[in-house]
Write a protein that binds this DNA or RNA. Structure first.
Lengths: 233, 233, 233, 233
DNA sequence: GATGAATGAGTGTTCATTCAT
DNA sequence: GATGAATGAACACTCATTCAT
């Protein structure tokens, strides 16, 4: 059903493949646009197909059902956001702890390429289904890895974080941003909002550090939380 | 179709009014039950009316549309939760700042006890509509008032809080709890989780205090944020 | 996906023709399999093509429409069954009248190579279209010829049979077997069922013989039913 | 849509009930008409509702799905046919065995008078679903009862019949008639056809009697086939 | 000849809402 | 006020068939 003749060298010809990829892209993009302009209510498969310049049948050739389109959109945006956050935590912009955190917060705030309505709609849809849980799985492992990365090694800035701490660190800021998005708060993109989020996280981290001094044994093999934030399938 | 015949005993008075109130109650309760047992998908007006023992026509006599039922349910639950939080912030349990915060956090975590599915469904529904915004209005003013109450007066514990600060204070903890609910995290009701939430809030408040010393002029009439968190209708 | 590359060895001759025949065979066989495993509901052209290891376009190169595939399958099975029945009536197994009839009945019961579900599905489909009539045409002439064969000539066992008699002789047993197939009766392949069908046919033939003694003039040219059972196209 | 005023006499108030019954009738009748005029292909729920002068929503208020409409129609027609056959077997017309059989055969041939296409369509539809089996259940028990009725008691005409015998007795004639209907044989209603069917059944019964002499012990409690033709749920 | 991406008419079904009784 | 039968717009989804490559 998929790659038939093996691709010889590189993908010399991917005539069909390329076409298919374009079609899928067009559909996902159309979904984002419709969500952005009309919200979840306007999101019908027929409308998406039409906007994508594709027949409804074609849409269903690539997506099992309406939800799959939404999921794909969510996944793409999530992936992009995680990549940015990863870069931010890496210290690519500002290597200080606060610098990293600020970069991460800024990324989270501006995620979804500024398509606030689409973002809102996707969040709503994701919640409306039960798929929020599975969608968060990659986030969860990412957060865990990120926490470990920042907190261990020679230049470790943090002690090992507990499951609950990682969860709260990631979800409290995200929760506040999400609430601001859903409530369409005007200060969402303001400097003040960003400042406060950073302050909150830094303060919390400070409290954690104050209580539990930097882990003297950052060896992952003896990490007290071998699989933090991954307690659920 | 159901308990229509009037209660025989005493309430001879308030014939219509009482009847109407009962009907409304029955409908809201039925809505909660259906949400709890079948999720948002099962929530149809016909079903709610049937469960309430009322005709669909009657339902529409009291509620303009499907949404109104949901809103009413949300409002009732919200009201109850706010009352509890109010009591917590009052220091009824433990008058120290941390004590008040812990009481509040605990209240938020255990809200809607026994109706997690309904809570989730209501949250989803509220988000799915645009009504989240208007629903948060009372919360907003409540939070503002609470912040002022704690932070002003002779025994003021806090400086006046900015709009963004109040927002983050309320939504970050709620956001984390909400995420835990939606993701069905097992540690939701654990002591550790509660501890960390309290720690986060306390740390954040500490940071705020450290930066901006207690407001020397707690007079509400000159409050720098006359209607914090209420910038939107 | 399938036998695409040409067989290298011997069949150098018949290049196109053989290929086409193979393709047609593969499609018909795939149709049978799908019918057998998923019933009529699973029978879609795309699925058949996929199972046959052929593109949907190729399927339509050989079959005008979906129905044609079904018809071809039905025709093949019918042909095989008729050949067997012919052999049975010839007395190849047991030359007595009852022996011949029993052989025929057994053949009818076990027709379609044991693929009961496929048989059922084909019957359903054939009925659902109007094509039952045309499909029965060869059966009709076969029956007519068979009746004549058994009933005429020096060793004639039967008188010439009327149109109605031939029809009933063929369709009553078939009808009962068909019903047993469609109703999925457990005794379909039991000896008792076969015995009773034979008994019914033998009894009926006996009654016919008793009424109209063997035709003294079996000359076909003067047959009273020049085109029995063939009154319709 | 129809007479609203309540039936005057006895069923004083069945206002809604009557309306509902009328609606259901209209739908079933519309289904029969559409089947008769356009065959199974034309049978869509929207079309049925439209022909019934009813909205599609109303149709679904009374029938769970498309199939349910078909089933209801089939059930009604079946019931009527069985009643007629019952009367025939009762010997109401001609009390001799052959007389009863002839009456039954005639009834079967002329069933659904005037609606051959609908009959055909219903048969097809019933087969297309798996519901043929369950639909035949009442027929099965009816046949069993009829066989017992004719075959037992003081004036018993028949020995107890085995499961297979009852099945063949009922399905062979029906099968032949059905084939004649589906193939639209011109002699379907001819006297000759009827004669031959009767002859076949009588001959078969004769053979049965010859082999197994009348049951000396017609006591149902010791019947060798306690539930003939009912081996399947 | 073969391919398979694309098509789109058409289907069954749901459910918020109305209004005659 | 209460009822519930009726409404019908709207939706998700299927699949036989075509045709550019």
């Amino acid at each position: 059903m998929a790659p038939r003749r093996q691709a010889v060298e590189n993908n010399r010809r991917t005539p069909r493949q390329a076409r298919a990829a374009e079609t899928v892209s067009a559909i996902v993009e159309a979904a984002a646009q419709i969500l952005e302009s009309g919200g979840l209510a306007a999101f019908t498969t027929n409308r998406v197909a039409e906007r994508a310049g594709v027949s409804i049948g074609t849409l269903y050739q690539y997506f099992g059902d309406k939800n799959a389109v939404l999921l794909e959109l969510a996944r793409q945006e999530m992936k992009a956001a995680l990549a940015e956050i990863h870069s931010a935590l890496q210290g690519d912009v500002d290597p200080t702890l606060e610098g990293r955190i600020r970069a991460m917060v800024r990324t989270m705030i501006h995620a979804f390429r500024g398509r606030q309505r689409a973002r809102k709609a996707v969040v709503q849809a994701i919640l409306a289904q039960g798929i929020g849980i599975e969608l968060m799985a990659p986030v969860a492992s990412f957060i865990a890895a990120a926490g470990a990365a920042v907190g261990s090694g020679p230049g470790a800035m943090l002690p090992a974080l507990s499951r609950e701490q990682l969860f709260i660190l990631s979800r409290s800021a995200l929760g506040a941003i999400r609430a601001a998005v859903l409530e369409e708060q005007p200060f969402l993109r303001s400097r003040g909002f960003e400042d406060e989020l950073v302050r909150m996280i830094v303060a919390y981290l400070g409290a954690i550090i104050a209580t539990a001094p930097p882990d003297p044994n950052p060896d992952p093999s003896s990490d007290p939380n071998p699989d933090p934030d991954r307690t659920r399938a």
